[in-house]
Design a protein around this nucleic acid. Structure first.
Lengths: 221, 221, 221, 221
DNA sequence: TATGAATGAGTATTCATTCAT
DNA sequence: GATGAATGAATACTCATTCAT
């Protein structure tokens, strides 16, 4: 996957990186506050600390700003994951930690994730495909972990349920941001992580001794 | 909760309802296709089958259109639920059916839900509060069902986990729309409902005989 | 001067008069409050007590409303003058009373005069000409009175100064309305009439015994 | 009186002045021709020699254009007065010249004064207050001159008549523009000034030997 | 490289007027 | 005669983008 290129009139790569980091930071703040469409490029330029002309030395269009934001979030998520994924933890505990780690990154990058989450749809064509592909990559990480867990005998899930579960984990993470108006009023991150991990792993906690108990209908394989 | 009033210059209430239904239908299509911000009021008017002047006889501002869309979705969800919630089904089966019913409404009203879901944040002030309140009402329905189930001895969950679980169900439903680019490519609605119900109720299906098995740490942990 | 015709779809002349009186009354209030351009025909219709459709049964265009207002003011001014002009008062006292009478009509019809005064320029073509012609007619009344006074030996003014003086009287009357923000705060009508009559008749009250006294430079005839 | 600020997106103050002068000039022409309400911002921009976007770099709203026009008129009136008011002319001759000077400025800036005069009422809130305050300032100049003249023994007028006379002078000046359809057809500026000065100073030129002669009822009546 | 003035296509909204009922 | 729903031309204002300095 060739990194979708955002055009720049400037040659110095180091400068480009620095300026774009400024832009992303400023943009995340603004996009969160007023939304991508209501935030103007002028405002982004100002908040970035330079003029509108300079802004356009480092991007080709407003959409590129949004793309840069999305792109940076994924990079950060992946970066924060690296150490953990390399560890030799195994079994349910490993799964638990991988998920928790992701949840914490989402919490740290809350504003960024929220922007990415709510405004991605405004990207068009190539940029959209690129961002969705990155999202799939993250999903793939979860899927791989779930497969590992299954191979270790911890879980019983067929392939397709497992793939869906991977999506599910991703969404439960994002939910911490896009429903923060409700959820973050009632729960701390720690509580949220605790409860949602239990929910993911054990479900509603069905009481098997209940009157209408019924065997867990796992794919009868 | 007084229904937030959308102003109209027209007096005939029946006509207002009819025209607004046209508007909502047209708007859902357009908003899905190009997003709320990129769709113009003129396009909405044309797609509704009348002129821009007429459009403004039935709404006060573009935002009102978005509000009407959101409002209509909730009404429909609640309407489709009515019979079921009055039935005398009980226990896990009732819970299952309530959730499934919701999932199916979301599937039916896919476009509407997606719009509501992705553009709600563009509402401002009163309208936003009103829509979020309706969302809470739906969450309350799930919460009440979960409480009933617990009282019948089917579930073991403390109050706060239960509240979060209610949010969770809601999101899993919406997820069918906002991740349709991935999920609907791989699963039919029936499959989706089947898998997600299992996921919600039983979690990852932890194998209690697995090496690192550990007791389900419900509540009394 | 053929009365400029305002078209009506209605036949009954008596009804037309009644409705138009309603329209004028409503319009004067609205035009004063918000100005001719910001007042809408809908508002005029409502304030008149009937529907927009009905309004257009009695006028041909919005401009006609303005015209009707202007027209009615002149009629009223002339009507109120009738008795006085027929009296056999003579000399300075007659002049005084004719002017005072005009000032009082302006005070009575303040809102109407102000509208006419400030919005006349928005009339176009025929209507404008008609209204200006009526204004000239009023000026002619003053001119005639001044001429009479001169013939009685009360005044010494040549024809051209006299014509200008007639305009002047007219404007001093209107000034009571269009500068009411300043003048009506400081003076009662009675005071205003008293002071302005003196001003008109005797000017600044030049002290003939003053050091730099100089003979009144009336046209040295 | 803090100068009401008209907002601009441009930083170069010199450029702002230059562009605004262009705008005022163009606007005066257009507003005279079609009136403030019927002239569009686009027309103003075109007549100013730049695009609509550029126009809005120098003003915040259409109303600001009107305000700039009014503001510039007062500045010009005051500027043209400066030398004269500092002169050591005294007595009736001074009064005469101050008034004449004002009349000539009004004649020079005819279009501007007319616009200001007829459209001021369309200003709202702060801008209106500001413009009326400037008008009062000009009136104050006349009032001060009248007081001086009285102190020099040239005039006999009480304070309140004198204040009204100041308003009067102002209106007689403006009248040259707002009744130009009639007055300028009959008189040259020079004539107008001559006649109106006489009218202001000596009134109708009452013949003291006339039959019904009565003592000039100045003040001590 | 950086700046910021200029651009003009684009957009929500208004409102005089018409006409079928 | 009265009504009021429908119309669409018109208009103030915004904002992404360019380019000369």
């Amino acid at each position: 996957m060739g990194k979708k290129q955002v055009p720049s009139l400037v040659k110095d790569e180091r400068l480009i990186s620095r300026r774009r980091a400024q832009i992303v930071k400023a943009a995340v703040g603004l996009f969160n506050e007023k939304g991508y469409h209501k935030a103007t490029t002028r405002e982004v330029a100002n908040a970035s600390g330079f003029s509108i002309g300079t802004l356009y030395e480092y991007i080709g269009s407003k959409e590129d700003i949004l793309f840069l934001v999305c792109d940076s979030v994924y990079d950060e998520v992946v970066r924060k994951w690296e150490k953990l994924l390399d560890s030799n933890l195994r079994g349910l505990e490993r799964l638990r930690q991988v998920i928790e780690s992701y949840f914490r990154v989402v919490d740290d990058l809350q504003d960024e994730v929220l922007v990415m989450y709510q405004e991605t749809k405004s990207l068009s064509g190539e940029a959209l495909r690129y961002v969705l592909e990155k999202e799939i990559r993250i999903k793939d990480v979860f899927e791989k972990e779930l497969i590992n867990a299954r191979e270790e005998g911890v879980l019983t899930m067929d392939d397709r349920q497992l793939s869906l579960a991977a999506h599910h984990i991703l969404v439960v993470g994002q939910m911490w941001t896009f429903r923060r108006w409700a959820v973050q009023k009632e729960y701390s991150v720690d509580e949220y992580i605790d409860y949602q991990l239990r929910q993911l792993i054990y479900g509603f906690g069905v009481n098997e001794q209940a009157p209408d108990k019924q065997p867990v209908p796992q794919k009868e394989e």
